[in-house]
Each structure stands twice: as structure tokens, then as C-alpha cells.
């Protein structure tokens, strides 16, 4: 079984060695789960379902690891899998409800999994446009958070995204408030540098 290759070494590159990108499944959750989750939630507001799709994406990635050619970055490759999962999810809903009620968003491009341009130009253009922009912004921020050292990204995420109190974070991570604020400061400074200037 191909999957057995994975157990021998955590890092592997299929076929030849000339590929620049490698898959490291043991790091997927830390590196990409929030990024993928953010995308999934933006398409499917059901957070439990979104979480399941992320998990399924990792499984599918593992299963098709042998097809990974190393020409796309790991993150790009994984989000492409997730996009398919989102489309399949809409298909399932549609087939359950019957053709009378098509709930697949109108301008959803099945090939790329992206919202088509026309969505921006429709009567709801303002809403559509800002939704797209916010989604893009969310992914950009998650991408930058993923580049932070593990503990900084944890503290920043708990504090900023999950809104957990300083006291609770300190208790959970066994740090004191001044440690926490130092990490928050470093994380925020790094994010300001990482996020593209045109967001500011």
C-alpha cells in the first residue's frame, strides 16, 4: 500500500527528487487547519460541517499523496482538495432537496471553486464584493499567522480570534501575563510586516 511509505519517513517526495515541494502530513494540522477552516466556514456557514470537511481534506490528501507532483505548494494543493469537497457538499444538498431548489450559489465556478466575476457585477455587487474581499483578507491573515512560531500563533489566535481572557490563556498554557503580552506584541508586529501593505 502506498500509504505505508508515509510511515517510514515523515517527509517524502514522490517519484523523483527534483521537485521543490514536499508533503509533510505530520505538520498539516498545525500549518493549514485554520487556513482551510477559514475558507470552509466562509463557504459553508455550518462550522461543524466545515470542520469535517477540513478533516476529510487531510484524509484525501493522504490518500492521493502519491499523485502529488510537487509543482504546487502544499497549501495550494490542499485548498484545491477542499474546494472540491465544498462543491461535493453543495451537490449533496442539491440532490437531497431535488432540482426545484438549487442552493448552489449561482456564480460558483465548479472548476476553480471560486466565485465567478459576474457575482461582483450582480445587483448585490456591494455585498458580493465585500464578501470576496473579506474572504481574501481572512486567508491572507491566516497565512501570516501560520508563519509565526507555534506558541506565538497559539497565543495570538486564542486572544484575538477566540477572544479568550488573558487569565484563562495563562492558566491553560502555564505562562504569566507579561509572557503573554510579549508574545502578543511579537505576533502583532510580525503580522503587520507580513500582511501586504495594500491591506492597510
Amino acid at each position: 500500500m502506498e500509504i505505508a511509505i508515509l510511515t517510514k519517513s515523515p517527509t517524502f517526495s514522490p517519484q523523483t527528487m527534483e521537485h521543490t515541494h514536499q508533503l509533510e502530513p505530520n505538520k498539516w494540522v498545525d500549518r493549514y487547519s485554520d487556513y482551510l477552516f477559514n475558507y470552509a466556514v466562509s463557504r459553508i456557514s455550518d462550522t461543524e460541517m466545515a470542520k469535517d470537511l477540513v478533516q476529510e481534506t487531510f484524509f484525501a490528501g493522504l490518500k492521493s499523496a502519491k499523485n502529488y507532483k510537487g509543482d504546487a505548494a502544499e497549501r495550494t494543493w490542499l485548498i484545491a482538495i477542499l474546494k472540491r469537497k465544498v462543491i461535493d457538499h453543495y451537490r449533496k444538498i442539491n440532490s437531497k432537496k431535488g432540482k426545484a431548489e438549487v442552493r448552489m450559489p449561482q456564480s460558483f465556478d465548479e472548476e476553480s471553486g471560486n466565485w465567478a466575476e459576474e457575482r461582483v457585477a450582480d445587483p448585490y455587487s456591494q455585498a458580493g464584493k465585500s464578501q470576496l474581499e473579506n474572504e481574501e483578507l481572512g486567508l491572507a491573515i491566516q497565512e501570516c499567522i501560520a508563519k509565526l512560531p507555534k506558541k506565538q500563533s497559539m497565543v495570538f489566535t486564542m486572544k484575538t480570534i477566540q477572544g479568550i481572557s488573558t487569565e484563562d490563556i495563562c492558566n491553560e498554557l502555564g505562562i504569566n501575563p507579561s509572557n503573554l503580552w510579549v508574545m502578543i506584541h511579537r505576533a502583532r508586529t510580525a503580522l503587520m510586516g507580513c500582511l501586504n501593505q495594500n491591506w492597510f
Partner: peptide, 24 residues
């Protein structure tokens, strides 16, 4: 503005465990 979402640490741990199971 980005309405960020994230998984909790325990949800991530759960995911890792599931993924490891599949790897094995």
C-alpha cells in the same frame, strides 16, 4: 473585518490523532 475563524487546540489535537490513525 475578516471575521476570522479558528479551531480550538483540542479540536486540532483530535484532528492530528485521526490523521495519525490513517497514516498507520
Amino acid at each position: 473585518k475578516a471575521e476570522l475563524h479558528s479551531l480550538t487546540e483540542s479540536e486540532k489535537e483530535e484532528m492530528k490523532t485521526e490523521l495519525e490513525k490513517k497514516t498507520l
